[in-house]
């Protein structure tokens, strides 16, 4: 069973069997414009909810990437290093930036569902 949630920092997390796949939202990529650089999270690192784990830069601005939950970073999307602009075409699918093993699933309850996020950005 897969569940997708959204954060105030304009990230999405798709949870499958206690592992979250994390990316920036389509709205975020639209606001950033042409993305040219990702500083990706550190592999195997343990992070707390809200920790800064990386940076995304567009020609216009730099924006921090945060971990939406506490956990251990299992995987990062190396493809974003060579092809950062893929986030402009596929932000909420192939352009995820990390997979994280979630330590406390209760933290997910603070996050928004799609309807709530849509309201936030409208």
């Amino acid at each position: 069973m897969t569940e997708k949630k959204y954060t105030q920092d304009h990230e999405w997390i798709e949870i499958t069997d206690g592992v979250g796949k994390v990316g920036i939202t389509d709205n975020a990529q639209e606001q950033l414009g042409d993305v040219v650089f990702f500083e990706l999270p550190e592999l195997n690192k343990s992070v707390n909810k809200g920790d800064q784990v990386g940076v995304v830069e567009s020609v216009k601005a730099a924006s921090e990437l945060y971990s939406p939950v506490s956990g251990e970073i299992l995987e990062i999307n190396e493809e974003l290093k060579n092809n950062p602009s893929m986030v402009n075409s596929d932000a909420e699918n192939s352009a995820w930036f990390m997979k994280i093993k979630i330590t406390d699933t209760n933290e997910l309850e603070d996050l928004m569902n799609f309807e709530q996020y849509k309201k936030l950005i409208s």
Partner: peptide
């Protein structure tokens, strides 16, 4: 206007 549909790089 900061940019149009196709974006700054285009």
């Amino acid at each position: 206007p900061i940019n149009y549909k196709n974006g700054i790089i285009s």
